[in-house]
Write a protein that binds this DNA or RNA. Structure first.
Length: 468
RNA sequence: GGCCGGGUGGCAGAGUGGUCAUGCAGCGGCCUGCAAAGCCGCGUACGUCGGUUCGAUUCCGGUCCCGGCCUCCA
């Protein structure tokens, strides 16, 4: 079954065929590391990370790059404010980003190129663009001439005239055309900078992605992905630079854009200040529930973020892990894991994660009802295999149900002691005493279940159990 | 203003020209000392107005509302 992807370049669903099946290339725009990222920033790495797993499963040899932007005016501002070199800021927050993404079950990409490690490539690309007449030098800036690229605006479907009509920003006087954008700009002595033929300076925002794609993935890549808010100008400009730097070769064959996360109906964005930082959320809620929540809507749709969404996700995972716990006695090796056709078909259909999660619920349902050892084994194999592909259900169920125990106010020994006391009370049919003990545990946030093989317990409620 | 996307049951959220999404919550039942979990069952959802059609939530047009981008943005 082919993988169908909605190619935003053509605004239609297309069958994905890599240019070279031996070497599939994927580039996702990564963060600017000047602060902790918010949960909206986590959507691309999570959803396109699932795409990476899907591609890797099918083609084996995937080269997946997700950059780190470590030179930028916001980083400069943060460094000046805190009185430290920019490297202190960028190292701190690129590490935090890696940790936050790992917590959300995002596998590291194959390549994590940093902009500052590619200044040479950036300068060479600038020179090539100048030589070929697609860029010019003005007041120590290197600017891309949008008029030199007839396809400019093709991705975002807008003409340069339209952009002019709606322009919100004053046009710098040295631009030949208002749509021209900066490839290289001068730095003052206190700002980070590198020597260049046009004086000491630093790269513009868009050129780094073009330079890093070229350096690591080649002139033409299979898939380029990122947030829909990057479609213009960032991705439009990348296309212009790369295409012109490569003599007209196609830059990216597929363009995928994820929708925005909303807070109270408005886009979650740092400039609006309505953000939840991943760093804080993973302290407060089980990270896997955050991942589930991010995958619960189709990636192209907007997703309303709310506490209720997280709690709903926790309860859904409770049920799925409950099924796995019922299958505790079954052992499934890595090679025995399976990916049911309906589940994979959903992901192949433009990464339809809600449908895939619906299929996962069905898989769990039949696994729960399986009677024979063979069926139960197949159920668990499917649950783990499908879960692995989408990055869920890979924990030990007991770990899931005891979420946050290490930080919570309860301790396991005390719980076990009360449970033993309750067991004895039940043996002598002192149910009043037994119910009292259950209530006592419940007051501590511990819920218990009596089963054939004794009593088990879990931490109840949503995420706040993990709060310190 | 220009370009683009969206309005589905209490909530989240897929999908389809004519029996079922799915999950969460709720209700009833089974099970249970009681619970919980699990199982079974239940609720006549597709913004609005027209059109096409034997039949439209699904196609077409109008309209209302919401959101995104228009050089900070995932």
């Amino acid at each position: 079954m082919p993988i169908q992807l909605y190619n935003n370049l053509h605004r239609r669903l297309e069958t994905f065929e890599p240019a070279d099946p031996e070497r599939v290339t994927l580039y996702v725009c990564g963060p600017t590391v000047y602060n902790y990222v918010h949960i909206g920033n986590a959507r691309p790495p999570v959803v396109f990370g699932v795409l990476a797993r899907l591609l890797r499963r099918r083609y084996g040899n995937l080269r997946y790059a997700r950059n780190i932007t470590d030179v930028d005016d916001k980083i400069n501002a943060a460094a000046i404010e805190q009185g430290v070199p920019i490297s202190v800021i960028t190292e701190r927050f690129s590490r935090a980003y890696a940790e936050d993404m790992a917590a959300l079950g995002v596998e590291p990409p194959d390549l994590v190129p940093h902009a500052t490690a590619h200044i040479g490539e950036i300068l060479r690309m600038c020179e090539r663009l100048i030589q070929s007449g697609h860029a010019y030098v003005a007041e120590q800036h290197v600017l891309f001439a949008v008029d030199s690229f007839p396809d400019y605006g093709k991705l975002s479907r807008r003409s340069t005239d339209e952009m002019l009509a709606g322009a919100r920003v004053e046009v710098a006087p040295y631009k030949r055309s208002p749509g021209d954008f900066v490839l290289w700009k001068p730095s003052t002595p206190e700002l980070p900078g590198w020597d260049s033929p046009w004086g000491r300076g630093r790269p513009g925002w868009h050129i780094e992605c073009s330079a890093m794609c070229e350096a690591h993935l080649g002139d033409t890549i299979d898939i380029h992905a990122g947030g829909v808010d990057l479609q213009f100008p960032h991705h439009e400009n990348e296309i212009a630079q790369s295409t012109c730097a490569h003599g007209g070769k196609v830059f990216a064959r597929f363009w995928l854009h994820n929708g925005m996360l909303n807070m109270d109906g408005r886009k979650m964005s740092k400039s609006l200040g309505n953000v939840f930082r991943v760093h804080d959320l993973i302290d407060k809620y089980p990270p896997e529930a955050l991942r589930y929540a991010l995958l619960s809507a189709h990636y192209r749709q907007p997703l309303d973020w709310s506490e209720q969404l997280i709690e709903q996700s926790i309860r859904t995972l409770d049920r799925l892990y409950g099924t796995l716990r019922e299958l505790d006695d079954i052992s499934v090796s890595q090679s025995e894991r399976t990916v049911p056709a309906a589940f994979e078909a959903a992901l192949n259909d433009d990464l339809n994660t809600p449908q895939a999660l619906a299929a996962l619920a069905q898989i769990a349902g039949s696994a729960r009802q399986a009677q024979s050892a063979v069926e139960r084994h197949a159920g668990k194999a499917a649950l783990l295999g499908a879960g692995e592909l989408i990055g869920l259900l890979q924990q030990d169920p007991e770990v899931w149900f005891c979420r946050g125990l290490a930080n919570a106010s309860v301790d396991a020994e005390a719980i076990e002691k009360l449970l033993e006391e309750r067991r004895l009370a039940k043996l002598r049919r002192d149910f009043g005493r037994a119910d009292m003990l259950r209530q006592q545990l419940k007051d501590q946030g511990v819920e218990i279940e009596d089963g054939a093989n004794g009593t088990r317990w879990k931490l109840a409620g949503a995420g706040n159990v993990n709060q310190h």
